[in-house]
């Protein structure tokens, strides 16, 4: 902080007229491609996202050619019962994943941290990380290889044990569990890596001193490792609150194979918006999308404010 003030002071002293400040101009030149990119591919769509939901948008007529209809596209969202179910799914999955993700990631990182054998550690890390580098499409094939109602691996084990084949693709009740497992399986490697890297950064003399005082593994974990991770956990939870209205399109679209029979427990706002796009009901989908973005932003800002109140160092911005 103090260093920055000093730098600022230095600049004030030698501040030139902006027109002669060639350094500023060359730095701006470096930013230029990105600035144009952000305007064209982020800000223009954002501007459009603020107007389409209020119009009766027809693709052929364009934005300005479509009639202004006020809040009509929003009204049905809160009255349609299928929409309420979708909102409920999105919210409950979001809430569950928001805590499940960081929890499982931290657990794995703490356990990895206990592994002393470097070769074993490297092997475990490599194995749990590879699903992060596969696409959801491939993960979808893998889940199908396991769950397939006719010749899947799970059914082979079940029939091998003398049970009857199970077709999970007609059982909506099975999907919260399946989706949770797939989500953990896909993300835990990289997810735990951040925490693990943070644990590696702890000064080892802390552990040595604790050992000298007779601390057990559990004590070291409880009083050194976990408190050290709290800031990161906070940041991940803040970053995750927009899941309450967002949710991963890939996970919910690909893994249940878009089977309408399973929509009860697998349809979320993101998959709904995609179907609206595919069916050409642009304005209604865009209205849902705008609500998603607005509420998502609000949630992140509020979560950040709360964390900032409690411990300013752990907030994201």
């Amino acid at each position: 902080m103090r260093k920055e003030n000093k730098d600022n002071l230095k600049i004030v002293v030698k501040k030139k007229s902006i027109w002669k400040d060639t350094n500023t101009w060359s730095l701006l030149l470096l930013c230029l491609p990105a600035i144009i990119g952000y305007i064209l591919f982020y800000y223009v769509p954002i501007a459009v996202s603020l107007t389409i939901p209020f119009r009766d948008y027809k693709f052929s007529r364009g934005i300005l050619g479509s009639a202004f209809v006020g809040l009509k596209n929003f009204k049905w969202i809160f009255t349609s019962s299928s929409m309420l179910e979708i909102i409920r799914n999105t919210f409950l999955y979001g809430l569950w994943f928001m805590f499940l993700g960081p929890f499982t990631n931290v657990m794995l990182a703490l356990l990895l941290f206990e592994v002393r054998n470097r070769k074993a550690l490297k092997a475990y890390q490599t194995v749990v990380t590879f699903p992060n580098f596969m696409s959801f499409v491939v993960v979808g094939f893998i889940t199908y290889a396991i769950l397939s109602p006719t010749n899947g691996f799970m059914n082979q084990i079940i029939t091998g044990l003398g049970g009857d084949k199970v077709d999970v693709y007609i059982k909506p009740g099975a999907w919260p569990l399946i989706l949770s497992l797939v989500n953990i399986w896909k993300h835990i490697g990289m997810g735990s890596m951040m925490y693990f890297a943070s644990l590696m950064g702890i000064d080892t003399s802390l552990f040595e001193a604790a050992e000298m005082d007779g601390a057990t593994r559990w004590h070291k974990m409880r009083y050194i490792s976990i408190p050290h991770l709290v800031p990161l956990i906070c940041i991940y939870i803040i970053l995750g609150v927009d899941q309450l209205v967002g949710g991963s399109f890939d996970l919910f679209y690909i893994i249940p194979r878009d089977v309408p029979l399973l929509y009860d427990t697998t349809d979320i706002l993101s998959t709904y918006v995609y179907r609206a796009l595919a069916n050409g009901t642009y304005a209604m989908g865009a209205a849902v999308g705008l609500l998603q973005s607005a509420v998502g932003m609000l949630l992140v800002v509020i979560a950040n404010l709360i964390v900032k109140k409690i411990s300013p160092d752990n907030s994201l911005f």
Binding site: Y38, Y42, I46, A286, S293, G296, M297
Partner: peptide, 13 residues
């Protein structure tokens, strides 16, 4: 742009 996304449909349009 990290906080607010335009969404799938406006981007498509």
């Amino acid at each position: 742009t990290m906080l607010f996304s335009a969404g799938m449909i406006p981007r498509y349009i």
